[in-house]
């Protein structure tokens, strides 16, 4: 595992990172419970990706840097400031949910104040938005950077290549992060691409690509910090590929038994970043069992509170279907034509 002092992290940072990973994991687990109880229609998980996500987001300046996450990035959005209540409101599609007020599926994060940019279900499209956002930031002389993520399956989409190309030509302050969990639903990475690493492709667009161990939040942070510094100085984009494990099926609607052996899943669980990071912190004397239990209790309280709050929150009203289609009211007719 990477040296945290050399990476510029403090002991406090490390415990903070662990807490963020733990919060993401426990919120995610609660979502599965609610789903299996029939109280929530859909879950898409961050489990196994938390170290990569928290490691990346720890290097960003919340509210200043733009964040274009993908659906697994619960660890990212929590780290830059979304609250557990906000996450659960979105998860249960409540009117008060900041991302979409109940319009989008869970995991489609949006939070304008935190500069978390609204996500599509269509994979990879956000890579181009990141390039445009970064272009605009540079044109105005701002030193904000733009984080954008996607899976290794999505990395095969043309939009990702077109975005790399723009970022290369204009040396845009974008950090492309590929969370490579080796599966796109059921399809192995070996059927997605002939090369070993997505990061190898960066060279073809004129900026660096780096592969990091996505189970080590310190290693990810170090790569991300370097990329952010380069981007802020006007030295252009970086592609970071974090090798991670997906610990659960693709989503609550998926059954992975037809395409993934149980042995493979058990092996992956032994490398669960939450466990390996906790062990390391313990070994380094930064997190003893008592403190760890305290954190568990604290996180559980936050998850309970968020669940209770969101379950009591109001659904959107039927008439909310028709609003906020246009930012400038149309000059004739209503905003949205009703169906009847």
């Amino acid at each position: 595992m990477a040296d945290w002092k050399e990476a510029g992290l403090t002991a406090e940072d490390l415990v903070g990172m662990y807490r963020a990973m733990l919060l993401a994991r426990r919120l995610d687990e609660r979502q599965w419970v609610l789903n299996r109880m029939g109280r929530a229609p859909f879950v898409i998980s961050c489990q196994g990706h938390e170290a990569a996500q928290v490691g990346c987001a720890w290097a960003l300046t919340p509210g200043k840097d733009f964040v274009l996450p993908y659906y697994r990035d619960l660890g990212v959005v929590l780290t830059v400031g979304m609250t557990p209540r906000e996450v659960m409101l979105d998860f249960l599609a409540r009117a008060e949910g900041p991302s979409s007020g109940g319009r989008q599926m869970p995991g489609h994060y949006s939070h304008p104040r935190l500069r978390i940019v609204s996500q599509s279900s269509t994979v990879a499209v956000q890579a181009l938005h990141a390039a445009g956002i970064a272009y605009a930031a540079r044109m105005r002389g701002e030193d904000s950077v733009c984080y954008v993520s996607f899976g290794e399956g999505a990395a095969q989409q043309g939009d990702v290549h077109e975005a790399f190309n723009w970022a290369g030509i204009y040396r845009l302050p974008v950090i492309f992060v590929c969370e490579n969990n080796k599966y796109a639903i059921s399809v192995s990475h070996t059927k997605q691409m002939a090369v070993e690493n997505v990061a190898d492709r960066a060279a073809g667009y004129g900026f660096p690509g780096v592969v990091v161990d996505g189970s080590d939040p310190v290693a990810v942070y170090r790569a991300m910090k370097e990329a952010v510094e380069r981007a802020r100085k006007g030295e252009g984009a970086t592609l970071i590929e974090a090798k991670v494990e997906r610990l659960v099926p693709h989503s609550s609607d998926d059954d992975d038994r037809t395409y993934r052996s149980r042995e493979e899943v058990e092996e992956a669980k032994k490398r669960d970043p939450l466990l390996t990071f906790a062990e390391r912190l313990k070994k380094e004397g930064l997190l003893d069992d008592a403190r760890r239990e305290e954190l568990e209790a604290e996180v559980k309280r936050a998850v309970d509170d968020a669940t209770e709050y969101a379950e009591k929150a109001a659904d959107p009203r039927p008439q909310d279907l028709y609003t906020r289609l246009y930012a400038t009211a149309p000059a004739v007719g209503g905003e949205a034509a009703p169906g009847a």
Binding site: L128, I133, M139, D159, E162
Partner: peptide, 25 residues
């Protein structure tokens, strides 16, 4: 900077323009 000869890639013309529009242009 304001009149941009883009790469020959229409999805990027629209997608990058969307990003610009999201960030104040």
């Amino acid at each position: 900077r304001r009149v941009i000869d883009t790469p020959l890639a229409e999805s990027s013309i629209a997608g990058v323009a969307i990003g610009m529009a999201l960030n104040g242009l």
